[in-house]
């Protein structure tokens, strides 16, 4: 059975050859694709622009060395001036510092499971995540719960009597 397009082709025979008709149809489709691409392509690149941003590392002093005795864990906060998209803001951050006999460790408080902030419970010597029940020991290692890896550790240096961490911003 002929469909309506074929019938239309037949009725137009003599005015336009089917091949010419089809060619023009393809050209219209092509032009539309180009026109759409001119807008959609750049918009997609624009939306994906955060993928191109490179993080910089910065050393930040977070605590006086004397305030962290050996064997202790404590939370320190610091402020960094960061570029947050269009805004330049003073962003407050937290870091957990733990001192062993040989070195100082600094942990990002973000749980490695899904990013909730862990809480240090000194009496239990553990970090607890309030969201999905992740537990870490003082060295940042997973004790129980769903986190797939230890707490993220920042590079640390002790200089001029202060503890510095290297933070990506």
């Amino acid at each position: 059975m002929k469909n309506s397009h074929d019938q239309a082709d037949a009725s137009l025979d003599g005015q336009l050859k089917p091949t010419r008709r089809r060619l023009l149809g393809w050209l219209v489709a092509g032009i539309n694709l180009v026109v759409a691409g001119v807008v959609v392509g750049p918009v997609l690149g624009y939306v994906a622009s955060p993928l191109r941003r490179k993080a910089k590392s910065e050393w930040v002093p977070v605590l006086d060395e004397a305030e962290l005795p050996v064997g202790q864990t404590r939370e320190a906060s610091f402020v960094l001036r960061i570029r947050d998209g269009f805004a330049e803001t003073d962003q407050k951050y937290s870091v957990f510092l733990h001192r062993t006999p040989d070195r100082v460790m600094a942990f990002d408080p973000a749980c490695t499971h899904l990013g909730c902030r862990v809480k240090w419970m000194g009496d239990k010597d553990r970090y607890f995540c309030p969201c999905h029940g992740g537990v870490f020991n003082a060295d940042g290692k997973v004790v129980s719960g769903p986190p797939p890896k230890p707490l993220e550790e920042y590079p640390v240096k002790v200089e001029d009597g202060r503890i510095w961490i290297q933070k990506k911003v």
């Binding site: 955060p50 993080a55 947050d84 805004a87």
Partner: peptide
């Protein structure tokens, strides 16, 4: 995650 957040952290973007 970067595409959804517009950056590494949840922020202005």
């Amino acid at each position: 995650m970067l595409l959804i957040r517009g950056g590494e952290e949840v922020g202005a973007l």
